[in-house]
């Protein structure tokens, strides 16, 4: 019936969400490891956003858009991994849900100089019970706080990996993603068999 034999070869798509405040290095991180130049598309926030915290002041029917940057990595001939970078703001929460559905996990990127920016993302993935790592982007190769201070400030569980990385370095981004997946693997191994 299908006259296109190569159509059988469609890879299984997977995704990881890259979250964090504006300007923390999400698109840089995606670009460092993606095999395509990161693409940008827009998702609409329409009346669907009604009732979401922080949106009350915006009249119903107002439509705004939010940019979504993404890239991809071919894992092997049958698996393709997408990385979706999304602004970490409360008001975009509904888009996170769309993005998080079926995700392997999330990487929350933090700028140690303004860690508050990542709280909405940390809150969100905790509530969703999606495996996540917090990755502190080392903008200038040094850190204003110790890891322990950061863990305390973020109030994340001891199981949640907190790592340093450099969004500009492919291998560093790779290792951050591997930390996330090893965390997801531990979780998977501890879950009861479905």
């Amino acid at each position: 019936m299908d006259s296109n034999p190569s159509a059988k070869a469609l890879p299984v798509p997977l995704k990881i969400v890259i979250a964090g405040g504006f300007g923390v290095g999400k698109t840089t991180a995606v670009g460092s490891i993606s095999e395509i130049k990161p693409l940008t598309t827009e998702a609409a926030i329409t009346t669907a956003a009604e009732g979401i915290d922080g949106m009350e002041e915006i009249p119903a029917k107002t439509a705004t858009t939010v940019a979504l940057d993404f890239g991809c990595i071919t894992i092997d001939e049958t698996l393709k991994l997408y990385l979706f970078g999304t602004p970490g703001q409360d008001r975009f929460g509904f888009m996170w849900r769309d993005l998080s559905h079926g995700a392997l996990g999330a990487m929350v990127i933090v700028d140690a100089r303004r860690i508050d920016d990542c709280y909405p993302a940390v809150d969100y993935f905790e509530k969703l019970d999606l495996p996540f790592v917090v990755a502190v982007n080392m903008f200038d190769g040094r850190l204003a706080h110790t890891i322990d201070d950061l863990r305390w400030a973020l109030a994340i569980s001891d199981q949640t990996p907190l790592i340093m990385f450099d969004a500009r370095e492919r291998v560093s981004v790779r290792d951050a993603l591997i930390s996330l997946l090893q965390h997801a693997l531990k979780r998977a191994a501890s879950l009861p068999t479905p």
Binding site: D2, N4, A7, L10, P11, V12, P13, L14, K15, I33, I73, T74, I75, D76, L79, L81, G102, A103, L104, R170, V171, R174, L177, I178, L181, Q182, A184, L185, R187, A188, A189, L191, T193, P194
Partner: peptide, 27 residues
């Protein structure tokens, strides 16, 4: 034709291990 993700992933140890191996091969 559309190929959708195979869900749920949370239990899929083999799949997660494959992704880790794939990432490890990135240099």
């Amino acid at each position: 034709r559309v190929r959708r993700p195979s869900l749920p992933l949370a239990h899929d140890i083999d799949l997660i291990e494959r992704v880790i191996r794939g990432l490890e091969s990135i240099r």
